[in-house]
Design a protein around this nucleic acid. Structure first.
Lengths: 203, 203
DNA sequence: ACCTGAACACCGTTCAAGT
DNA sequence: ACCTGAACACCGTTCAAGT
């Protein structure tokens, strides 16, 4: 097996065994049976290794990319992409168990370093996905080019809010409220460009 | 000045100078002119130091009941109101236990009728609060009068997203990301109608 | 081109010892 | 009670040297 593959394989195993596994250079290199330097040759930074791994995992469990479907308007496409994030959550029953996993993995335990980095890896991958959508739409001129991080964070927060609301007890029509909120979020993103980030408030 | 105070002051300065400053034990201790051990005595972990700092910053920028304070622009007032919802959640530790309660009360158990009505009571109270703010602002002409339920739902979803993100493991810059997202949400709500009031430019 | 591992400059935390 | 700083066990990255 190729060295690069051995490394990714070893890292994947470690994550499979424990979501919060540390994935340090030395640990992964040892498990893969390669040297530190060799790992660095294939993955110039630890970040690069983690990104490659996460990308592979996510590619595996959700293909298809409605963002480039030119038969739909940009706002419809972005809407569909956001829906595609919420869809696998299912409705109440499934959403409840899904949030159970999230709660026990990342909220209940103390946010120790391994827990934290495990969660941040997921978060980064989610950001990467949303960023991809916005970049594609920006290429088409549907929204101004530049730094989208502000809008990415905004959309992810809305998605977090909607997904937790799926798990909470609902009134009759979640679907309508959800659609309206998604519409509002998409409207906002498509009607505003990237903006310079605000400076920190001073204590 | 007290040692604890010197440390917080030094950390605050470093963040003010550079949002992405590292805040390592040695860097903060050196800047504060205290020893590593002393810093550790007052802040048992680096995490504890960062949380104390964040808490202080939030306390500083939270005034009293803000919706009718005519000295501020409508958008600043709405922003402050939303912050006032998030503030009592506290950072990670408190937010985690708070979400623990929510999870065990309303997500983990089957959504039987008593569970459901108990949750909906909370939800209705939250809606009532947000609706009040929007009504006051509508009276001033800052946004069109009429039915605000769409905007209320939108804002509550954003608040849900932000509050769950407080309970999840965080990056360093929660405060900035949160502020930007709140800004985006408020922008959206206030731009859904005419009557743009001339307030000071936003940061 | 690929691989090695020692070395470097960091990190957060611990702890015996001081006042 | 508060403070000190050396020591410990890590970390990611670099790099001269090998094949």
């Amino acid at each position: 097996m190729e060295t690069r593959e051995k490394i990714l394989q070893a890292a994947a195993e470690m994550i499979a065994e424990d979501v919060a596994a540390k994935l340090s250079v030395r640990a992964v290199a040892a498990r893969a049976g390669v040297s530190i330097g060799s790992l660095r040759f294939h993955f110039p930074t630890q970040r690069a290794l983690q990104d490659s791994l996460l990308k592979r995992i996510y590619e595996h469990l959700l293909p298809g990319d409605p963002i480039r479907d030119r038969t739909l308007s940009p706002r419809e496409r972005l809407l569909n992409c956001l829906r595609q994030v919420l869809a696998p959550l299912g409705t109440n029953e499934d959403a409840r168990t899904a949030w159970g996993t999230v709660y026990r993995s990342f909220i209940e335990p103390e946010p120790t370093e391994p827990v934290r980095t495990a969660y941040l890896a997921h978060e980064r991958e989610a950001e990467r996905r949303v960023e991809h959508w916005l970049t594609v739409l920006a290429e088409e001129g549907a929204l101004p080019p530049g730094d989208h991080t502000r809008n990415v964070r905004f959309l992810l927060t809305v998605l977090n809010g909607l997904s937790v609301e799926r798990a909470l007890p609902t009134r009759e029509s979640v679907l309508i409220a959800e659609t309206e909120t998604l519409n509002a979020a998409v409207d906002h993103v498509l009607s505003t460009g990237p903006a310079p980030s605000a400076g920190p408030p001073r204590p």
